[in-house]
Design a protein around this nucleic acid. Sequence first.
RNA 1: UGCCCCGUGGUGUAAUUGGCAACACAAGGGAUUUUGGUUCCUUUAUUCUAGGUUCGAGUCCUAGCGGGGUAGCCA
Length: 567
Amino acid sequence: MNEPNDSIDPSAHKNFIEVEVEKDMATKPSLSGKHVYTRFPPEPNGYLHIGHAKSICLNFGLAKTYGGKCNLRFDDTNPTKENEEYVNSIMTDVQWLGFQWDKLLYASDYFGQLYDWAVQLIRDGKAFVCDLDAEQMREYRGTLTQPGKNSPFRDRTVEENLDLFARMKAGEFPDGVRTLRAKIDMSNANLNLRDPVMYRIMHAHHHRTGDSWCIYPMYDWAHGQSDSIEGITHSICTLEFENHRPLYDWFCESLKIYHPRQMEFARMNLSYTVMSKRKLLQLVNEKHVNGWDDPRMPTISGLRRRGYTPESLRLFCEKIGVARFSSTIDVILLESSIREHLNAIASRFMAVLDPIKIVLTNYPEDQTEWMEAVNNPEDPEAGARKIPFSRELYIERDDFMETPPSKFFRLKPAGEVRLRYGYIIRCEEVVKDANGNIVQLNCTYDPQTKSGSPDAVERKVKGTIHWVAATHAAAVEVRLYDRLFLGENPEDVPEGKTFLDNINPDSVRVIQAMVEPELAKQPAGARVQFERNGYFCADVKDSKPGAPVYNRIVTLKDTWAKIASKG
RNA sequence: UGCCCCGUGGUGUAAUUGGCAACACAAGGGAUUUUGGUUCCUUUAUUCUAGGUUCGAGUCCUAGCGGGGUAGCCA
């Protein structure tokens, strides 16, 4: 397992959780002699997304920086929504992100203990079996502004509760007819304390416990007790559980068991995407994308397939910080994180996405020169390679303009440009078809300007463009991914519309590109830079040996696009 | 409408806990560059508002305004 090894100085800025954890470890008698113990507690009802990455980095990161441990615990208390496919994908994602859990656990491991504790609460008069159905319970609960009413079953005797609860467990009653409830306070301003349900009857097959249970604990009843059993010191969750904290505390205190501290932080919102599991599931089920790992998805598996590195995701999570304010992170920050990492490690190659042929009229017909090209200017260790140069070449259609604006530094009629690692060429003639479309450029090259030669250093031209030799070029499939959604906030829609109406119709464009020979040999999963264009990853599913399919991870920054768009 | 939480450059986070508002990204300007990439320099803030405490407030107090969460037998 590769351990996270990121460049950010952890001592630079502590987030509020680190501050509190340090304070607790130093001052709380109950924690003296202990190490920090956290857990990442996903429900296996969907694939993990970038928001989970934040939580993973936080929980595992805390354990790492303070020399503690972190468990992976599946919160599998609702068998109707959970399954093993999700369990497996979550384990894969956590490990791929670079983290290793201390213990692999399931809330369902504790069903027996939880049941015993429920019996204890019944004996203590702190829980009761309630016969209200869901609708009645809602009526009795009251509203935000009005207190609730006690259930008519609230004052059953301990013996009756014990008997009924045992029979619930034994499967004597159909789904939904009875619940076990904590007896707290129906008039509490916090609705979570109005006699919350602890168990509901569900005759459902559980992915781990099979058919041995027909009553399943609710989140509030299972979660804090699981934390307690595991000796978790800090139970970190998102802000929507803040109102649950008094209940978390109530259960631990009523049971007189070890009491971890719950702390909440703001979940991540990312611009130009949706993050809720329900919506991601909908995108998958309705085939707006090709599965959970579609490279346009904000899932960890999607980002992985797109070509994001674990390092870049960790770097991103470090950069966004942790706070209690609900904010929206600009997706540009995610993109800059992967650029930062790939700039350092990705080898450069030449690929022409939208080719136009040029003919060097003064270059020998049958000659091929092998030009030396640096693999990665950021990393001398990456070495160099040879690329073929010949009379007929492809350049990017965008790199030629017949009537360019003044700041256009690329090829133009009677203009000069350097072919990277090649020669300086001059455009002599523009060849068009009957419709006036440019089909070929006839150019001349200057033999004195071969890359690397002393004379070449003398001659300066404004622009350098990439190219591939027509004779040696390979055609490969390239998928140009763009944002999945058009609006900064896809959920911000007019009446009658949904987030689906904000799907970007051009979120992927599949093209054939002409690439230098080395690019046709890359193994699946390889991450490379197409010079002057962007970072690409050989798709792990669709690439074949000798025929990689490239996913565009992210474009390079494009200053020219800004200049051009300003007119 | 009750209760809880939160408001610091365009965005996201800091600020030795009451002492010159900092970092990253973005944006603008400049330098370097055989990637219009990278790198380097540089410019961008009445800390939501109004009062109060204090020699001194982003930080403490009060009120207002704004945002988020919350009425599943989901998590």
